[in-house]
């Protein structure tokens, strides 16, 4: 969507996939349970949601190629503002989710101001280091995450119970659309994907579809592991994925919750920094900032993000459900139509 990247930097297709995956891993790890949606339905919903993303969201996002994307002019600026608010909100939301997780699971008396400001400043700094740093670190982090997840799951394999996947009591009509909607509304990274086109070295089509496929696999794997190992306990805990650590009988550690926290925080910082980077880029686009002044956009976006963390209700609303779906379907369509009308008028 951004035709000219203000900050420069180029990433490969594999790095694009890793960056998007780390963002979705964070939302998967903090995914709250829903007692009314069975695991079988969750698996089906993940597949349907991936299909919708692949068939509708990704083509729309890709249509907004750097040449046809957000132009200057009134509507261009309006769209930039909308996307900027969204990315600030989603980064604030990642920070809030991290804080919520810390407060609920580890530090009952954690101060929201301290944690949110610290995280926002760190994310601002990481965003300042550039897209390449974030993309490379997401690849490293994804590898670490994969190894730790396997290490968490393997010791608990013996305790796996498939009965939750057979239980029919959790299935009732209307579960699937609800689950699909829930899954789609966690897809902030799909909106971000459109903005990665400006940074990509190669055609973005293949990485996007690879991302959707890998995300589906990972989602199914996690739902399956949580369901099989956690069973019904996964419905009553706030963080089902983390609950796996409670079942792991580790030889080195008493409990591995803190290890889980570490990977969640690192993933959170990388994904929030990524969203902040896009927000900073959009701020530059809105005010048409050039040269060294672009660096000012990082502290500005970090401060705005901090402010949004204190308006947590708005931040959560802005990056969930309807706004996300609007941003990856309706608004791209409007932009395309506006661009076409402009082209026709100029002819």
């Amino acid at each position: 969507m951004n035709s000219n990247s203000f900050f420069g930097g180029r990433i490969s297709g594999a790095q694009t996939v890793c960056l998007l995956l780390i963002c979705s891993m964070f939302s998967l790890m903090t995914m709250p349970p829903d007692e009314n949606i069975g695991f079988k339905v969750q698996l089906a919903a993940a597949a349907v949601s991936a299909l919708i993303q692949a068939m509708i969201a990704i083509p729309l996002v890709m249509l907004l190629s750097p040449e046809n994307g957000l132009k200057r002019g009134f509507w261009g600026i309006v769209c930039r503002i909308l996307y900027c608010i969204f990315f600030l909100a989603i980064s604030a939301n990642v920070i809030l989710e991290s804080f919520g997780f810390l407060e609920k699971q580890f530090y009952r008396n954690a101060g929201k101001i301290g944690v949110c400001i610290t995280l926002a400043v760190l994310c601002g700094y990481c965003a300042f280091l550039g897209i390449e740093g974030l993309a490379r670190s997401s690849a490293v982090m994804l590898t670490v995450l994969f190894i730790i997840t396997i290490a968490l799951i393997l010791p608990s394999v013996g305790k796996a119970d498939m009965s939750v996947f057979m239980d029919r009591s959790f299935v009732y009509s209307g579960q699937l659309p609800k689950a699909v909607y829930k899954d789609l509304s966690r897809g902030g990274e799909i909106v971000a994907a459109g903005f990665l086109a400006g940074y990509s070295k190669e055609n973005i089509r293949k990485p996007f579809y690879t991302f959707i496929a890998v995300k589906l696999l990972v989602t199914c794997g996690i739902i399956f592991a949580v369901g099989a190992i956690g069973g019904r306990f996964a419905y009553i805990t706030d963080y089902p994925f983390m609950s796996l650590s409670a079942f792991a009988d580790d030889v080195l550690f008493g409990r591995t919750d803190a290890v889980f926290m570490a990977i969640l925080i690192i993933s959170g910082i990388i994904s929030a920094a990524f969203y902040l980077l896009i927000a900073s880029e959009l701020i530059c686009g809105i005010f048409d900032v050039r040269d060294k002044n672009v660096l000012l956009s990082f502290p500005v976006s970090a401060v705005l993000c901090i402010l949004l963390t204190f308006a947590d209700g708005y931040a959560k609303y802005l990056c969930s459900g309807v706004p996300i779906i609007l941003l990856f379907t309706v608004i791209p369509l409007i932009i395309i139509l506006l661009n076409r009308r402009k082209k026709e008028a100029s002819r």
Partner: peptide, 12 residues
């Protein structure tokens, strides 16, 4: 948080 910043720093 420190590990994240060091990681991104080295990678950049």
């Amino acid at each position: 948080a420190l590990a994240a910043v060091v990681l991104v720093n080295i990678c950049s």
